[in-house]
Simulated scan of single mutants.
Amino acid sequence: MLIKEGNAVYHITLTCESSVLKKRIKMRNTQKLVSIKRALECNNQIKKLESHYSINTTQKSPEQVADIVCEIVDELINRSGKNND
Results as ranks from 00 to 15, higher is better:
residue 31 Q to W: 07
residue 5 E to T: 07
residue 68 I to K: 14
residue 11 H to S: 04
residue 71 E to K: 14
residue 31 Q to S: 14
residue 78 N to T: 14
residue 34 V to G: 02
residue 24 R to A: 01
residue 14 L to A: 05
residue 60 K to D: 02
residue 14 L to Y: 06
residue 20 V to P: 11
residue 75 E to N: 14
residue 53 Y to H: 08
residue 51 S to M: 06
residue 82 K to F: 08
residue 26 K to E: 15
residue 2 L to D: 01
residue 56 N to Y: 09
residue 54 S to I: 09
residue 4 K to Q: 14
residue 41 E to T: 07
residue 9 V to L: 10
residue 31 Q to D: 15
residue 16 C to S: 09
residue 61 S to C: 04
residue 71 E to H: 13
residue 59 Q to I: 03
residue 2 L to H: 10
residue 65 V to G: 06
residue 23 K to S: 12
residue 47 K to M: 10
residue 72 I to K: 08
residue 14 L to G: 07
residue 80 S to L: 08
residue 50 E to F: 05
residue 26 K to T: 13
residue 19 S to H: 13
residue 72 I to R: 03
residue 52 H to K: 07
residue 15 T to S: 13
residue 52 H to V: 02
residue 8 A to M: 13
residue 56 N to P: 08
residue 34 V to M: 15
residue 2 L to E: 03
residue 24 R to P: 08
residue 83 N to A: 05
residue 73 V to S: 04
residue 3 I to W: 01
residue 49 L to N: 07
residue 23 K to A: 11
residue 20 V to H: 08
residue 29 N to W: 06
residue 66 A to M: 10
residue 57 T to Y: 00
residue 61 S to Q: 05
residue 13 T to H: 02
residue 47 K to D: 04
residue 22 K to E: 15
residue 41 E to G: 01
residue 46 I to A: 04
residue 4 K to M: 10
